[in-house]
Amino acid sequence: MYLKRFVELFIVYVISFALGSLIYGWNFFANYWFLILIGGIIGYIILIIPLTIMTIRKMTKRETASGENQPAQSRFSNVLAELPGNLYLATSDSDGNVSNSIVTYTQSEKQENVLYVVTDPKTKRAQNAVNHPQVAIASLYDPKLGTRFSSNQATVRVIQGKQAITELVNSTTALQGFDDNITNQAVLEITLTSAVIESFRDAPEVVKF
């Protein structure tokens, strides 16, 4: 809890205490216990309303920072939220040889069709992405309904260097705390132009961005 919150709570407490003390001093109530009850109820109301407002404001700020309150809560974002944070990433070299691997990803809080993958710059996928930005991805699936997504309409931008990655992390909440050694890694910024959502129950659905 920050100092600001302590100060806010102290101010609210002083106000509730002062109002309660004022009520105790009124003489038109004959019953002492009734005075205590009324003063306690009013003091509680004065205390709890500001606390509720401050809590709601804090939760709203947190949701906004994490992307939960962004307009990106569409069908695609909801599917991503239900699935494991891993996907299959297929890259190819200049000769057309395909390399496929399972990677951990995080979604941008600003653009739902942008995914980030942190990887060693020496990996085959990172080297392929530098020379051939066209990639394909496919998520793992939900074992209950088989919900999954895939896309072969995706391009990747490789971000390397401490300064460039630091600037990216500072402006991207999703990457903050994602990898402690991120400045020494390469960040693959995958941008989708469309994706296919499938399941055991529903027909394939094409989502365009």
Rank of each mutant, 00 (worst) to 15 (best):
Q134E: 15
Q127G: 04
F29L: 15
I48Q: 13
I38F: 12
A138N: 04
Y116A: 08
A174L: 04
F29R: 01
F178S: 10
L35P: 00
M54C: 01
T123A: 10
Y141N: 14
I197V: 14
Y44T: 14
G96T: 09
N100M: 12
L35K: 15
V12R: 01
I165L: 05
L3W: 07
P50R: 11
Q153C: 01
S171R: 15
L83G: 05
S151I: 02
N131K: 09
I41E: 06
Y24G: 00
G161S: 07
S171Y: 08
G146V: 14
A164V: 00
D179I: 04
R5C: 03
S139E: 07
I182R: 03
G40W: 08
V187N: 10
S66A: 15
R148V: 00
V103K: 06
D95H: 01
A65C: 06
I45T: 02
Y88H: 09
T147I: 13
G43C: 06
V135L: 08
D179C: 14
Y32S: 05
N113C: 08
T155K: 15
Q153L: 03
S66N: 15
S74K: 06
F28P: 00
V206F: 00
D180F: 08
L22F: 06
G161W: 05
V14F: 02
T52V: 05
A154H: 08
Q73K: 15
A18Q: 00
K110G: 06
D179L: 13
Y105K: 03
L89G: 02
F200I: 05
I15E: 01
